[in-house]
Amino acid sequence: MATVYQTIPQLSQPHLLTLADYSAQEILDLLDLAIKMKKPENKHRPLLQGKILGMIFEKSSTRTRISFEAGMLQLGGHAMYLNTQDTQLGRGETYGDTARILSGYLDGVMIRTFKQEAVVELATNSTVPVINGLTDDYHPCQVLADFMTILEVFGTLKGKKFAYIGDANNMSNSLMIGAAKVGMDLSIATPAGYAPNQWVIDAAEGFAKESGATLTITTDPKEAVNDAHIIYTDVWASMGQEEEAAERLAHFEGFQVNEALTALADPNYIFMHCLPAHREEEVTTAVLEGPHSVVFQEAENRLHAQKALLVALMADPSIEI
């Protein structure tokens, strides 16, 4: 049988700041490309031969740095690590000025930082693609990997019930936007006082109306998990919140994802976590290492989903995959 090729997905926006930037079809096209990129025969396709990605880090990283760096190498390009303390950003140069400088040297920029406004300022002043590798508000690259994993397991996103248990943070924000875009029903359970910001809820509800998805915000983990196909959690104290860890531990009592809670889900549910996990806090080891867990498949898919994104943003659009 002849090999079937496809052209690179054409994205309507030159940057990825949040998943709200892209249509549902664009997200699905990226996921389709990611699944193709994961095939062994496509691992070392030099689709970004000679291209250079600058990677700005203001937050520590394992998965983000290694997956982007490995992805660029596998695609025939190069990734350049830029710690802000080793650049003039650490001495007060603006993100706007930095973007104008880097645009003359690089073919793309990925940034992992605190404030979403920093990513926006960088993209506004850049003539090369800018990718949000994580901010306090959003983590879109992780959600692309999450959705890719769900597609590998279930074959579809639309109509699946997704339950998020724990802190309303950058992960829940991005999952709300992404799920609403692609038509997944999402239930979020957080302790009182830790609910998602209203501006995220409003945005997600708007996208849900378009896709037919439902969005439920509750303080009852059992309600959220009931009949869920996907159960997702994250650490209760994110980077920068370490001083709140003890207080949060008390407030999040009853929100641990354990075998008693997961027994309420669909019998074929999968468990997901963006990692790193604090075992026996937000999730038990029995669930994290259990037969329903796909966390390490999900972690590997950061590489493949981001390679698809890099290709879509940086490769010659006439290339066939």
Rank of each mutant, 00 (worst) to 15 (best):
L303Q: 03
E282N: 05
V120F: 10
T3H: 11
E93G: 13
L151R: 13
A208P: 13
L122P: 11
L102E: 06
K161S: 06
S60C: 05
S67T: 10
P129D: 09
A204Q: 10
F114M: 06
G254F: 08
K36W: 06
T113A: 00
G92F: 04
I35C: 14
V295M: 09
E223Y: 07
F271Q: 03
A168I: 09
G166D: 00
E259N: 12
L303D: 09
D316K: 00
I35Y: 13
I131T: 11
S293V: 13
P191Y: 04
T219W: 00
G178K: 08
G96T: 11
G71P: 14
G77M: 00
D32K: 03
L106E: 04
N169E: 05
S211F: 08
N268T: 07
I35S: 14
A213F: 09
N301K: 09
V4K: 12
Q256I: 14
A123N: 06
N226C: 08
Q6S: 13
S211H: 09
I35H: 07
S126V: 10
I165V: 13
T216G: 07
S12P: 09
L33G: 10
N226M: 06
K115P: 05
M55C: 04
M314Y: 03
G206H: 13
E281Q: 13
M37V: 15
T233M: 02
M55K: 00
A24F: 08
E289H: 05
K115S: 12
L310S: 05
Y81A: 10
N197L: 14
A168G: 11
F296E: 00
L47A: 02
E69Q: 08
